[in-house]
């Protein structure tokens, strides 16, 4: 078996481990939700009995769940870590098989981008209890890896002259890391929006299972963490665009030519810049700023998939044979 084939098997293994972790994370969330719903009912009953028929106000405190009830999340974290290990080894082997850095076509970008997303998530969990993010981050990663293996896969190989540059190492790695970070903050901002709607008693989030949102950090905290990650992501993205311009100057003889990839990298950049301004504008911070993160992430995803597959420009490095 060649290194490249071994790498693919490991990536399949990582994807499977992530899928298991995903199920465990979801189970944990469901337990949390049950617990939150039960304690809310209980409290409601208490209130009703003491206050003699006054309307029970839903308590939205952080429902602390006893540790033994959260075995699922322990399993989730260990399988996710195992998956990450396989993922790292698989990616390294891919690079060895191709004799270059493992991020030169779409399959490989996805490989490294999801690697960064999962690694960022696991690293953040050591700093704060953000395990509730597991469902979203791993869900997206499993989806992306599955798509990569099924649709973007190309065998490991050397690259054409236009890609033979140390800028491949710099520009693309930073871009992929930024994408991984944007993924995590997208998850945080989505939760912020959900929790905010739930706190406003949105009828669509009336079902008891949404009680789980009560056990998440406050919307303020979610927004703050999301912002910090986005800030790092934005600086890295700025660097990506600049490094891309320098590379384009070397390889194509112009630093900026409004190639579709350049247009969309610019759009991503402008949307996140708008997000940073929204956060400091009266009446735009909080909920509205979070929407910018969602739009921003949508442009990131389109820049990665749509531009490579739908629009043709100089950046057609997906490596997928046409036709």
């Amino acid at each position: 078996m060649s290194l490249g084939e071994l790498s693919t098997i490991l990536v399949w293994g990582a994807t499977t481990a992530y899928a298991v972790a995903l199920v465990a994370f979801a189970t944990d969330l469901a337990r949390l939700a049950d617990h939150a719903a039960a304690s809310a009912r209980q409290r409601g009953a208490e209130l009703a009995s003491t206050a003699g028929g006054s309307t029970a106000v839903l308590e939205r405190t952080d429902a602390a769940v006893a540790p033994e009830r959260r075995r699922a999340v322990g399993i989730a974290m260990s399988t996710a870590t195992l998956g990450l290990l396989l993922h790292v080894v698989g990616t390294v082997l891919r690079g060895l098989a191709a004799g270059r850095v493992p991020w030169a076509n779409m399959y490989e970008f996805t490989l490294v981008g999801t690697l960064v997303a999962v690694a960022t998530f696991l690293a953040l969990c050591r700093w704060r209890d953000l395990r509730f993010l597991g469902t979203i981050v791993l869900g997206l990663s499993v989806l992306a890896l599955g798509l990569a293996l099924a649709a973007f896969y190309v065998p490991a190989d050397a690259v054409e002259p236009a890609l033979q540059s140390y800028w491949l190492v710099i520009h693309v790695s930073i871009a992929t890391i930024a994408t991984g970070l944007f993924t995590v903050s997208f998850a945080l901002s989505s939760l912020q929006l959900l929790k905010d709607s739930w706190e406003q008693a949105s009828p669509r989030l009336h079902h008891p299972r949404w009680q789980v949102l009560g056990s998440l950090p406050s919307t303020r905290d979610l927004e703050a963490i999301s912002f910090r990650i986005n800030a790092v992501g934005f600086v890295l993205w700025t660097f990506t665009v600049m490094a891309g311009a320098i590379w384009a100057e070397h390889a194509w003889g112009r630093y900026w030519g409004w190639d579709p990839k350049e247009v969309w990298s610019f759009v991503v950049w402008v949307v996140y810049a708008a997000y940073l301004h929204a956060r400091t504008t009266r009446g735009w911070s909080g909920r509205r700023a979070a929407w910018f993160v969602l739009v921003g992430y949508a442009t990131v995803l389109f820049n990665f998939t749509g531009v490579n597959l739908l629009l043709n420009g100089k950046h057609s490095y997906d490596g997928i044979p046409e036709g």
Partner: peptide, 25 residues
């Protein structure tokens, strides 16, 4: 700041057609 924000969003929007339609240069 509000108008700066609007203009930034507008800039993102007006940049898009150039990636979809063929461009003369």
């Amino acid at each position: 700041m509000r108008v700066a924000l609007m203009l930034l969003m507008l800039l993102a929007v007006v940049a898009v057609p150039g990636s979809v339609l063929p461009q003369r240069p």
